[in-house]
Amino acid sequence: MKSTKILIGRIFLYGALIIAAISFLYPFVWMIGASFAPTHEVGKMTLWPMHPGWQNFVSLVNKIPIGRSLVNSLAIAIVTTSLVLVTGSTTGYALAKMRFKGRQIIFYVIVFTMSLPFQITLIPNYITMVNLRLVDSFFALVIPFAVSAFAILMFRQAFQGLPQALIDAARMDGCNEWTIIFRILWPNIKPTLVTVAILTFIGSWNEVLWPLIVIRNEKLMTMPQLVTLFAVGGRADSQLGVKIAAAVLLALPVMIAFLFFQRHFIQSMASTGLKD
């Protein structure tokens, strides 16, 4: 009697979880199937088309420079992430392990600026880009994201957890501060490096409002930007399959990275509670 009750409970539990999992996975699986479907089959709910082919991807490549935008997005995300790691650790190191005038003020400024909504700086920053003649250049996509208050706070916290003896010993051996930060301390804070790197990379990869504002030249566009403009611009209207193929190409790099490093992804995001 009791065991049947438990069994029913289990069935209900797994049933609910599986329905939830399907509701999250089905759209993506459908999307991949639809991207291979010929025009008359795209709207079907089936997961795999009867007559699959590459024609959607071929016409996508012919219509917009999607390959180039993939390279652009990758380059921008990699450069931005590297800069954030470097600037974040130098500043975080100074705040954590050095005593100097203004240290406390800088810390408060960082905390305050983190809570400042981006809507207030959006228009002025665009004007700054115009005045620096950076509109339509990769610098416009990298420089405003090259320093991150969040990364600085993460590194500060990580460095505070390391013993001072480690730094003193390195100094005794004649290491300068750069060697100390990047050679001695970095290997000791790998989880923080991974977290900051993943969040920065994903944030940079998925950013779309800022590129829409500062990049007008199609050759310099990032992938989400190009796909967005393609989706709303009417060029994809008649061909749903092509639009979905664009979405697949945009989703694929992040999904592959996620499948390889899923534990790191989930831990990074959960430990900070940040989405982007």
Binding site: F24, F28, M269
Partner: peptide, 10 residues
């Protein structure tokens, strides 16, 4: 978690 990491555009 997949929808969390995929671009809002997708």
């Amino acid at each position: 978690f997949i929808p969390v990491i995929v671009s809002g555009v997708v």
